[in-house]
Each structure stands twice: as structure tokens, then as C-alpha cells.
Amino acid sequence: MGRFWSLLFLMVPILGVGLFVLAIAGTELPGLSLRDHWLPENINDGGYIIDDLFNFIMYLTGAIFIATGIALFWFLWKYDAAKNPNPVKFVHGSHTFEVVWSLLPAATLLFIAIFQMDAWANHKMRRPILGPGPDGIEHTADDELKPAMVEVTGRQFEWRIRYAGADGKFDTPDDLHTVNDLHVPVDEDIVIAIKSQDVLHSFFLPNLRLKQDVVPGMKQFVWFHANRTGTFDIVCAELCGWGHYKMRGQISVESRENFDAWFQDEFKEQGRTQLEPSEDEE
């Protein structure tokens, strides 16, 4: 039976890698469709690095997965008590091996850690700027940061959206309000302010590789640079109550002209409904 069990453990790397390969290839087999069973399309300029890192870590860990899986199989196969006539190797360890297999992973892990810091900084620390500020040097503390064009507020169970309008300021008469319907122009740096009115939510745009929990009592900024038009999901990714699953929004990335046209239409529409007796804001 030792043979059978060895082969069972060999199946782990074979089937494990196999499923990933089939999924990445988007395989269409009889009774099994794995189309679109992988990272969804990325449309954010800053998102490619996330996919690259994902793939890099996948190849690296994949190699270790295969190597350890095969080593486990091979030792089980070769040293099966029923087949192995040799006496056991009475060894308590090996200093050399311990040093090698401590230092190698340590170096690799440290490399990954340092290698990705730049991407992290771009996503969460380096908000797009309008100018370098008084000292004339970019990426210093006095940079003139790009203001948010739109503010998204999570509440059970919808996304309340508010545009600053032409004056670039919130709480002015030219603000535009929508619910679950976010529009942004393509090929521009977009900064969004995100907030929560009640509980934690998470503002997750899978196609823009963007996720940030929104925290009641905190105002945060997220940014991206979309490079293709289309309509994509806004997902709530942090448990926010019984209706968490249905807290779905939409982001439409449009050309600048289409965006402006949409904005004008919506603003006129808003003016009309504001004159009528207000339907309950809820």
C-alpha cells in the first residue's frame, strides 16, 4: 500500500498545479468551463504591478510547492518500510542544511518584502498631486495634493455618491448626488474621498485592483487612473450587516465628453426633482 499512498501524495502537486493552469488558460472542457476563472480584467494603470506581483509570487511559491511535493512523494516511495532493505540513516540533523534552508527563504522573503514597497506606496501613500508646492520638489510633505472630485459614503446597504461639481468644493449648490452609480472620466487621475455613515464597509473595485475599508469617523482617499471605458462592479467587501451581499454599485468609466454630458443631464434631472415635493431621501 506504500506505493498507493506515495502516488496519492504525488497527486497533490500534479492536480494542484493542473487546476491553476486550466484556470489561467480559461479552459473549456466538456462539463467544465473555466472561462474567466482568473484575475478579472485590470483597467487601472497602477493595477498591473499588483497582477505582476501576484504572478511573481505564484511562480515562486509554485516552484516550492512542486519541489516539496515531489520530495515528499519520492521519500515515501523510496523509503517505504515494505520495499526499503537498507537500515535507517541514524542522523539527528545537519547543520549545513539548516543554515541553507534558513538563509535562502529568509533572503527571498526579504527580497519580496522590499521589492513590493514601491507598489504599496503608489497605491496607498502617493496621492496624485497638482503641483510640487512651495519648495518646488515633488513628493515632499508640502505637495499640493489633487482634491477629490467625488465623495462616496457607504451606508447600509448602498453607496451614496456626491460630486463636488464645477467649483471643486463640496456642500455647494452645484453638488451632484447619485446612489450606487459612479461615473468617472477615462485617462485621468481620479481621487475619491470615501467615508462611512454607520458601520464598516469596504470599497472594492475588482477591475481597478482597488480596495479600502471605509471606517465610520474617518475620511480616506483612494485614487486610480483608468485606461479603458466600460461599466464595472463596485463590491462591498467588508461585512456590514444582513444586506451586505446586496450592497452593489456600478462604476462607469467614460470619455471626458460622455462624462460631462452625463453630469449635465444628471444635474438637470436633480434640479427638476428638487423642485417637486421631495420623495423620502431614504
Binding site: 506581483l53 511559491t61 522573503l109 519580496i112 518584502a113 513590493q116 482597488l210
Partner: peptide, 12 residues
């Protein structure tokens, strides 16, 4: 390790 990598963790 995927999740320890902060940029990847943003997505997953």
C-alpha cells in the same frame, strides 16, 4: 505569502 504582500493583499 500572497496575502503578506501588501499590494497583492489589496486585491485578495
Amino acid at each position: 505569502i500572497f496575502m503578506a504582500a501588501t499590494p497583492v493583499d489589496i486585491f485578495i
